[in-house]
Design a protein around this nucleic acid. Structure first.
Length: 219
DNA sequence: GCGACAG
DNA sequence: ATCTTGTCGC
């Protein structure tokens, strides 16, 4: 599978993106993936959390461990972690849920970050969250600046806590950049990352360490 | 050619 | 992302 073909796949996904106002939001899901190698094999641990919105009560946590075959290549992250992530996500999904993914949405050279891919593939509203800017330019001043990619306003760079570096929010699918920003703001609880992503990150690392110690004690 | 480059 | 101790600061 060459990059040219993978690029075509991303272009196809990008063409299926919908930018619209999602309906009523009752839940918000978060998804994150951790990695580790064991006996020469690489594994991915994806954890998905489901929280009420806007109350943010933790309702469900599900994790999936899988082997990984694709390397990390900037702008091709979806081919590395989406399979495991989608498996975990499907276990917590309900109607009226917006998904928050640890990765770009439309803030991607071909408008196809992993959040967009997951959103289009599962046909649901998705938001991309990253701690580093993959591409685009930042415009404006203050704690909330616009993120522009190829002249298109796809999301925002926001300062979620003073003394912290900013995070990047972008629409993934079936949501507008402004609505994505609103949902993320409503999921902030004093930490750098919005709760759904922060919780998913925490659980993926927890399950990873438990899984590793199980493997090592079963020798 | 050079620099940039999510997780 | 991951490998890693102490350490600065709220």
């Amino acid at each position: 599978m060459n990059l040219e073909r993978l690029r075509e796949i991303q272009d196809e996904i990008a063409n299926r993106v919908t930018i619209s106002e999602p309906g009523e939001i009752e839940y918000v899901a978060g998804i994150d993936t951790a990695f580790f190698r064991y006996s020469g094999t690489e594994y991915a641990v994806s954890s998905a959390v489901l929280m009420s919105y806007p109350g943010l009560e933790l309702l469900k946590v599900e994790s999936v461990v899988d082997t990984v075959d694709f390397p990390y290549i900037p702008t091709y992250l979806m081919f590395r972690e989406s399979r495991t992530a989608i498996k975990a996500l499907k276990k917590v999904l309900r109607e009226k849920t917006v998904v928050m993914v640890d990765g770009s949405g439309l803030a991607h050279p071909r408008r196809c970050g992993i959040a967009t891919y997951i959103g289009v593939e599962l046909s649901l509203p998705a938001i991309g969250i990253t701690k580093k800017r993959l591409c685009g330019e930042v415009a404006g001043e203050g704690d909330v600046k616009k993120l522009i990619v190829d002249g298109e306003h796809v999301g925002y760079e926001i300062l979620t806590c003073r003394r912290c570096k900013p995070i990047y929010v972008s629409a993934g699918n079936m949501i507008t950049p402004d609505k994505a920003l609103e949902v993320v703001m409503n999921c902030l609880r004093g930490y750098k990352l919005p709760e759904p992503v922060r919780m998913a990150d925490k659980y993926s690392k927890k399950v990873k360490s438990e899984y590793l110690s199980d493997l090592q004690s079963s020798i």
